[in-house]
């Protein structure tokens, strides 16, 4: 991982953000914690680099609103949404609005690290190259895993058990993949680019 990458953690639950900072710190990540979306926006600077770990439901501005505001400010830092509610519909909305990934609390630290690595990897080329205009949608590492297992004929519950995530999260990945692939069909130009 890049040395200057920071994980920006936003959660209104004090134990949650404290424990995440401790864990990620021990894993060698640089972290910065915020008690609310408003606090993060107040501190925000366009030079930020790394990944945001944002709780979905917070007092005041919630995760989706924060994401929209960051989008408006043309922030390129990928956003990973966390939720304690296991709310598939909202998770879908978050992914649709451009969130990089989605984590259902409580989560295993290996899953968390996977997601963060893949989010940071997605951002790395952004820093060097110009904004990608039309690109073939890429599946994230976990989406790829889910796709492979689904192709092998595994059921949602089985995939969830293997990846150590909840069945609901698997559903969200599946729907997101089909969305990406549909986008591919809709736009012939992008597929010829490949």
């Amino acid at each position: 991982m890049s040395a200057d990458a920071t994980i920006y953690i936003v959660d209104d639950d004090i134990a949650m953000r404290d424990s995440l900072a401790l864990l990620l710190g021990l894993k060698g990540f640089r972290t910065q914690i915020f008690a609310s979306a408003e606090n993060l926006l107040a501190a925000y600077s366009p030079n930020w680099f790394g990944c945001m770990l944002v709780d979905l439901r917070m007092l005041g501005m919630d995760g989706l609103q924060l994401q929209a505001e960051l989008c408006r400010r043309e922030c390129r830092v990928p956003v990973v949404i966390m939720t304690a509610y296991g709310d598939v519909a909202t998770a879908r909305a978050a992914l649709k609005a451009g969130a990089e990934d989605f984590l259902e609390k409580p989560f295993d630290d290996s899953v968390l690290i996977d997601v963060l690595q893949s989010a940071l990897g997605a951002q790395a080329p952004l820093r060097q190259s110009a904004p990608r205009a039309k690109e073939v949608p890429q599946l994230t590492t976990r989406e790829q895993q889910v796709a492979d297992m689904a192709r092998a004929g595994l059921q949602v519950k089985q995939i969830a058990a293997k990846l150590n995530i909840s069945p609901r999260t698997v559903e969200v990945y599946k729907s997101r993949m089909s969305q990406k692939l549909r986008g591919l069909e809709d736009d012939p130009a992008s597929s010829s680019d490949a």
Binding site: D13, A15, D18, S19, L20, L22, A84, G86, K105, D109
Partner: peptide
């Protein structure tokens, strides 16, 4: 889920 998630994080 919040306390459980934090608990998992602290133990890890």
């Amino acid at each position: 889920n919040n306390p459980l998630a934090a608990l998992v994080n602290y133990l890890r």
